[in-house]
Amino acid sequence: MTEEEFDVFYATSYPRVVVQIHALCGNWAEAQDCTQEAFVRAWDRRAQLVRSDYPEAWVRTVAHRLAISRWRKARRAFRQPDRAVEHHQSPQPNPDRVLLERALSQLPEEQRRAIVLFHLCDMGVQDIATELDCPVGTVKARLARGRAALAGIIGDDAEQDDPNRLDPHATRPPAGA
Rank of each mutant, 00 (worst) to 15 (best):
Q48S: 12
A77Q: 15
D82Y: 09
D53S: 14
F78C: 03
A47N: 03
A74F: 10
L66H: 02
R79K: 07
V50Y: 06
A57Y: 06
H88L: 14
K73P: 06
K73V: 09
A67T: 00
A77F: 07
A74H: 13
A57S: 01
V62R: 00
R70F: 02
R45G: 08
R72S: 08
W58H: 05
R76D: 05
R45M: 00
S69E: 14
H64C: 10
F39Q: 04
R72L: 05
A77R: 07
R46M: 00
R76A: 06
L49P: 01
R72T: 07
H64I: 12
S52K: 11
H64N: 13
A63G: 15
R83A: 14
V59M: 01
E56Q: 12
L49Y: 04
A67S: 03
V59T: 03
S52R: 10
F39I: 05
Q80P: 06
F39S: 04
Q80E: 15
H64L: 12
Y54I: 06
A67E: 05
R79I: 08
R79Y: 09
Y54E: 11
W71M: 13
D53V: 14
W71C: 12
R65V: 07
V85T: 14
S69K: 14
W58N: 02
A47I: 03
A57P: 00
R72I: 07
Y54G: 04
P55N: 00
A47C: 08
T61L: 08
K73R: 15
W43A: 10
L66Q: 05
R83T: 11
T61E: 15
S69W: 13
W43Q: 09
H87A: 15
A63V: 07
R70S: 02
R83M: 14
W58I: 05
H64F: 10
H87W: 11
E56D: 13
P81Y: 11
R51F: 08
H87T: 12
T61Y: 08
P81A: 15
V85M: 15
Y54M: 10
V50T: 02
A57F: 09
R51M: 03
D82R: 08
R76T: 05
R60A: 14
Q80L: 13
L49D: 03
A57E: 07
L66I: 12
V59Q: 02
V62K: 01
A63Q: 05
R83Y: 13
R76V: 03
R72F: 03
S52D: 13
A74I: 08
H64R: 08
R65I: 08
R51W: 09
L49V: 01
R51K: 09
Q80N: 12
D82V: 09
I68T: 11
R72V: 07
R46G: 03
Q80D: 13
S52C: 14
K73C: 08
D82S: 07
E56F: 08
R70T: 02
R83H: 14
F78E: 15
W58K: 00
V62T: 11
V59E: 04
R76G: 05
V40W: 04
D53I: 11
L49S: 01
H64K: 12
S52M: 13
E86V: 00
P55L: 01
R46P: 03
A63D: 09
A57Q: 00
Q80I: 14
R65K: 10
V62L: 09
V59P: 00
